[in-house]
Amino acid sequence: MAAVTHQAQAIELGGSRSVEAASDHELLAAIRDGDEVAFQEIVRRYRNPITNFVYRMIDDYDRSVELAQETFIRVYTSASRYQANYSFSTYIYRIATNLAISELRRRKRRKTISLFSPFTNDDGDAVEIDPPDLNTLQDETMIENERRRAVARAITSLPQKYRAAIVLRDVEGLSYDQIAQTLNLSEGTVKSRINRARNLLKEKLSAYI
């Protein structure tokens, strides 16, 4: 992908073009020039996807909000070093992924033991005990809530290296190419990890498929 020249993309916000119409690269160029409005627009575009992504990674809403804010702070403070060799979404997801993985490692060091996953596999990752509940639930909301919790638990129980790939692909809908760039892996490795993660999830969520 050809490098984009920042200078050529620099925009004058408040001029004829609106902020909403500017591309991510143009907004980054404006942020580098100290434009706060451009930064607010970037935040508006990505705050929900990033928060949702981090939440799916760590399954902790309050912490995911903090990490999403940290992601934007890093975007702002390192705007001068940003190189538009690939899409901005890849760049911001990479920051968020690194923060989420750091958080998971920190939690792993703390040796917290979940009631749902008191055991670990050979990789040291939590193995969830999630026996299927064959009883019929009466309330639709309860069913939906139970399904959502089951999906969240299943994702959380995945090994860390599979988790980021499957969330980026099946939850956030990124392409294999974008995931490969975000995780700094080859596309083949990404495909392999996603396939492996889906096989694991299929076993855990068989009652809901």
């Binding site: 935040v43 928060t51 995911s64 804010q69 099946d170 889906r198 299929k202 498929i209």
Partner: peptide, 24 residues
């Protein structure tokens, strides 16, 4: 595979809180 992907992508997405920008 289709059912699994629908299950993963079909869940409720969480959004940033209303005071996200102020906190940021």
């Amino acid at each position: 595979r289709s059912g699994l992907r629908a299950l993963l992508s079909g869940g409720t997405r969480v959004n940033a809180p209303v005071n996200f920008d102020a906190m940021l």
